[in-house]
Amino acid sequence: MIKKFIHQFASPKTFLLQVDKFYGLIFFTSLCIYIFSIIWGLLFTPEDFVQGNSFRIMYLHVPASFLSQSLYIAMAVSSATYLIWRVKLAAYFVIAIAPIGAMTTFIALVSGSIWGIPTWGTWWQWDARITSTLILFIMYLGLISLHNSFSNYEKADKLLSWLVIVGAVNIPIIKKSVDWWTTLHQSASITLTNKPSIDPVMLYPLIGTIIGFFGLIICLILISSKNQIFIREKNKSWVKDYV
């Protein structure tokens, strides 16, 4: 049943048509949520008692950090889908997500560094969370370079998918690094099981920025996936008709 469902909705042609239908809606909704939340967070939330105004960088840092790990999980799920059910679109997703994942991880690292100067007094610390995020960034770059080193797309997709699945072992390490090791980086303020330790005045715009950023990144992934479809299926007649 899963196989039938996947094959029905995962043809590149169906995907392109669905993307065209919903892209505008996702993009403008996400953009509005993000702009509204970031203005709320930057201008209308009170100063933090300890950190002063520097805490406001979290409206960029937290969504980027959250997505840097989530995108890798999305890549791992897509890789498994490609290897198990041979869904081509899943392979396109993997390579479409990789550079965007690298970009969000880079944003998370840079914004974290900038935040580190006023709060920790240093822009970099060889702390478990920061180091494991740097490892994730290197992994993204490694994945991109592995895929680019093969001219045969099918082979590159398979090898990339295997590496993504193996590399997924790093995600729980990054996630739990703040609990397993004594780190300078604080533990998670928002979890699924506990009440958030962050004040609601700061929390609501933060959730808004996460949702908005997530939506915008999805739009980027959709564009990148469309690009992959055009590259890979350029000789198909339906692509020529579409273009």
Binding site: T131, S132, I135, L136, I138, M139, G142, L143, S145, L146, L163, V166, G167, V169, N170, I173
Partner: peptide
Amino acid sequence: AIVTMPIALP
């Protein structure tokens, strides 16, 4: 080595 080194770092 580049692609597997990050897995070895933990």
